[in-house]
Nucleic acid binder design. Structure first.
Lengths: 339, 339
DNA sequence: CTGAAAGCGCTTACAG
DNA sequence: CTGAAAGCGCTTACAG
């Protein structure tokens, strides 16, 4: 592959001049510029980004460590992150933690070794030493969706409080009283918060969230299935199950279907995170929708701000309830989705 | 961030010795080794992968350019690629072309500039000059899923011929005679092939695939919706629609639903590419399943073979039909899915 | 406007 | 077993 030396030789100038032309430095004669451009063209020269990074100490690359690419929520997040980053002149390297702290650390380490300019992470756990060290060492960092309390890093996330309250009101209005949740890992903020907020909202209606109706999931399909089976095995199963993410809702659907039962007649279902397929499931699933694309873009902007020396602030955007049919037919027409 | 010099100073050895320890070179005294390890530990030193890459001319990185990350098929492919690559000691950088040739070129260029060791691509079009040049220039390359004819690069893909034939037999057995397809872009191999194979299979049953029943899609949701609307507007709409990928099937579902019609009673539906959600859609969708994970892994193995100087062969794996209820109830129990 | 030279952080023949 | 030195491909003060 042609190097800058080859271009210099071909153009009859020094490598310094070639470099200046490549970087649009103003003090280059028109003549030199055209000769260099011609040489670049004829050799099919492309600057070596590795060498450039070593020299400038910038990679123009962002690392994104997400908990699970197969989760459509994170896929969409990753996509919006890449789009916004590209618009700002950055590439992004994605690391998929698959909800495993060890894999998360693997990717963080790999990304740090590659000297990415900044790190966007949706932590799978409460923060490994590696991650905490990186934050303390001053690596530009932003948390997205999930975060680690006590670490001085901007957080870009959705606030689901109002939407969860709307959901509970909806469930209550439909007559449901025995309500269960499939929670995410307690080591994650979203895993904890969704349960807490849900419980608080239930209390406002005088409802309880008993131990037996609090299942521990891990945000992945299998756990949703397992927990739902447990609920169905109870002497008095819940009337509704709220899955703290869309994959566990899929697992719940699997479990219900496997027993030949129907949603919402036998058991109702709602999910955190809305996805396109929920419109076409049987029945369409009531869900809490996050402004995913906007979260991804805001996170990138905050991170790039940090990288380029600007403040880089936390952002919280509201989530909203999208009512469909999986909790039963609404007697009054509340916020019925039009999609 | 500590560099190799800092480690050398701390350990009281030369940087060469530090490098040897880091790379498990045999000729290092036990004493030097322990001192270096201690220094690495106490400084929290991590080798700079950028510098190492510049020096060794290897990045241990694979580039993966896929047509659309939001397509669950490609998400799963990307995931299996990353897994296998990691197992073989490589990282992967994903570029999402979003079915746009210009974006595809952007990513290919970016990856080449970063000097990735090899490129895995599922081309969005018939091959840009950039891609063809890269292949000719000897960049280790492998095509997955889609490929570019006439380019000497291994291809790892699924053969859907038998599955499509099974599908047509299934449709025929159910009494369907007016059959339509939502095709993918003619510039892609999969876009072309799926139509051809489908047409051939229909002919074997004495059925025709008229122009009016051949809609041009682009593998994305909106095109599936648009084409399906066109079909429904015909004086004599088709009895079945076969979507050449899962996203266009989703668009078809949207279109059918928007008119208040039902699958399969008003119009039947089948799709290429099976995804988990198809089990829970209303109705469950009959689909052709590719061995996606295996394709991703085989593609990585072929690419790494090429990178490391071994042959690196093409692989073709069979796809299979998964019958569900979206084409109507089967009178005879053929290959009913158990999932 | 231009070039020679230093240096980014590594690895690796080469000599000892 | 070890170190001094060259060199990977760039960028950028510095001097002219």
């Amino acid at each position: 592959m042609a190097s800058i030396k080859d271009v210099a030789a071909e153009a009859g100038v020094s490598v310094a001049t070639v470099s200046r032309v490549l970087n649009d430095h103003p003090s280059v004669s028109a003549d030199a510029r055209t000769r260099v451009q011609a040489a670049v063209e004829s050799l099919g020269y492309r600057p070596n980004a590795v060498a450039r990074s070593l020299r400038t100490d910038q990679t123009h690359t962002l690392g994104l460590v997400i908990s699970d690419v197969l989760n459509p929520y994170f896929t969409e997040l990753a996509r919006s992150v890449e789009e916004e980053a590209r618009a700002l002149g950055y590439s992004v390297i994605i690391g998929n933690a698959d909800e495993r702290p060890d894999l998360q650390d693997h990717h963080v380490r790999n990304l740090l070794d590659r000297r990415i300019d900044g790190l966007l992470v949706s932590p799978t756990d409460g923060g490994s030493p590696l991650m905490l060290d990186a934050a303390r060492a001053g690596t530009p960092m932003v948390f997205v969706d999930r975060w680690i309390p006590g670490v001085d890093v901007p957080v870009v996330r959705a606030d689901g409080r109002a939407a969860v309250r709307d959901l509970v009101a909806h469930l209550y209005a439909l007559g449901h009283r025995r309500v269960a949740i499939i929670a995410g890992p307690a080591a994650t903020t979203t895993g904890r918060e969704r349960v807490e907020v849900f419980r608080e909202a239930l209390q406002e209606h005088g409802l309880d969230l008993p131990e037996a109706y609090t299942g521990q999931g891990d945000f992945q399909v299998e756990s949703g299935r397992r927990v739902t089976e447990g609920f169905l095995d109870l002497a008095e199963p819940p009337e509704v199950v709220f899955a703290a993410d869309n994959l566990m809702a899929l697992g719940a659907l699997d479990a219900v279907r496997a027993r030949g039962l129907r949603v919402p007649d036998d058991i109702a279902l709602a999910a955190f995170d809305d996805i396109r397929w929920f419109v076409h499931t049987d029945p369409p699933v009531t869900a809490i929708a996050q402004p995913t694309g906007e979260l991804g873009r805001a996170a990138v902007r905050a991170l790039v701000d940090r990288i380029e020396g600007r403040p880089g602030e936390s952002v919280t955007l509201p989530a909203r309830l999208v009512v469909r049919r999986s909790c039963g037919e609404s007697p009054s027409p509340v916020q019925r989705s039009t999609t």
